[in-house]
Simulated assay, not measured.
Amino acid sequence: MKFSAFNPFPVYGTEADPARWPVPPRYSAPGLAGDGLARAWELCDLADELGFDYVSVAEHHYHPRQMTPNPLLMAAALSQRLRSAGVAVLGVDLPLTNPLRTAEELAVLDVLTGGRLLVGLFRGAPNEFLAYGTDPYRSREAYEEALDLVRAAWTEPEPFAWIGRHHEYRTVAVWPRPVQQPHPPILVAGNTPATARYAARQRCRLGLSFVSAARAAALVAAYREEARAAGWEPTADDVLCRQFALVAPSDDEADGLVRRYGYGDLTAMRAVSDPRVSRELTRAFGGTAPSTVDVLPAGPMFVGSSATVTAQVRDFVTATGVGILDLAFNELNLPFAHARRSLELFGREVIARL
């Protein structure tokens, strides 16, 4: 079993409505962003000290609870801070980026981390397509082509041309080669059966996020079945799941914190302020863009005292076959002190028990 600490680099103390996307820049008061970054680095350093296997970052736009428009920028800084933990970029939204630039920067990151890089290459959440005017109707096809291009850029030994439907480059010769050969592990989001099976056909790792144990088990089963049909057998490390975790000295205190601080910011990540735009994006995703209600369990997956959370984690892993848990400790609108304590209790007591 491996553990990753997800850090969204949130701003604390803003008066912005966390259930809104995008959040108007007028709420970005002087000093707030710098304070949020300083506290985020503190949690990253603590996770490394506590023995987490990875510290992870992700791409999101236009919201103060996730200040990572370019996760590779944060990952580069992490590569120079972390002494033992790997860096997990979970992930880059390929339809929003230049895939060759992404391939180059990730290759450099693999060198900077000494081969401790895990890469998530994602299509992106529906609201993210509004950030740069990306066409959501073409995003699936463009994403799959970009994934193939990134992998080719990492593995082809000679310069080559790429003439595709969505990307065209006359000369591709990415430097440097990644430390990990043939390339760093690639993780693909698989919160639907179709995407889970796609990950298996691509021989990529499977990434799940905020799903119930029953749903995770079904998706992992579909992934493993498709992998066997493709002639390979995934290991436990090939399946990662992101969940919330909140550890407190007692079950009662943990439950009280959940009731008080709730899910506001996650709802914002999955929602768009204009409902007409939200409906249009869902249609563009072929009706497969899950709502928060569809995906999330009734409450955070791992909540309680360290003993309770240990049992919850053990039961979840046994039921699903997930090998890496990517845990969000500071994304529940929690005040920083509670988020830090939760991370520390998990590292010192839950990981030790497991």
Rank of each mutant, 00 (worst) to 15 (best):
R81Y: 04
V55I: 12
Q66K: 08
L147I: 04
F346H: 11
P95T: 05
A152Q: 13
T235R: 15
V119K: 01
V258S: 08
A5D: 13
G287E: 06
A142P: 05
P249R: 08
L50V: 06
A161D: 09
P184L: 06
E158S: 09
D274I: 11
A248I: 02
G262P: 05
V57W: 09
D251R: 00
E226K: 08
Y12P: 04
G321P: 07
L257K: 08
L327F: 09
P10Q: 05
R165I: 06
V220Q: 08
R279Q: 14
A222I: 03
T134Y: 07
G264V: 05
R201H: 10
Y169I: 01
G133L: 09
Y223I: 10
V211R: 13
P185H: 10
E141Y: 07
V350E: 00
L257W: 14
Y261S: 07
V247D: 07
A289K: 06
A284G: 11
H183W: 05
L32H: 06
A77M: 09
F122I: 03
E144F: 00
A19N: 11
R205F: 01
L334F: 12
G114N: 12
P95E: 03
Q243H: 15
Y62E: 13
G133S: 10
L112A: 10
A216S: 15
R348C: 06
T155E: 14
A236L: 15
E253R: 15
G164L: 01
A311V: 08
G190P: 00
A229L: 15
E145W: 09
D148L: 02
N330E: 14
A194S: 07
V211S: 02
P185T: 11
L345I: 09
R151L: 01
V188W: 06
R140I: 07
S212Q: 01
G321L: 08
L130F: 12
F129R: 03
V293L: 09
Q180Y: 00
P193C: 11
Y62T: 08
A88M: 14
A16M: 06
A218N: 10
A5Y: 10
M269N: 10
T14V: 11
D294I: 06
P234Q: 05
R116K: 15
S342A: 00
L118S: 13
E156R: 15
G347C: 06
S139W: 07
G124N: 08
P185I: 05
T292L: 11
G231A: 09
E128H: 12
N127F: 02
S56H: 03
A337F: 04
T113G: 08
V317A: 12
V303H: 01
A311M: 00
L109V: 05
P10G: 04
A77C: 07
W154I: 04
P193E: 11
A352F: 06
L118F: 10
Y143Q: 12
R283A: 14
M301V: 14
V258M: 03
A311Y: 00
Y261F: 15
A254W: 04
P18T: 03
A40E: 13
V188T: 12
L149V: 03
E49Q: 12
F129I: 01
A153V: 03
A222K: 02
F244A: 13
I163A: 13
G299F: 06
A217K: 10
Y143P: 02
S84R: 15
V179N: 03
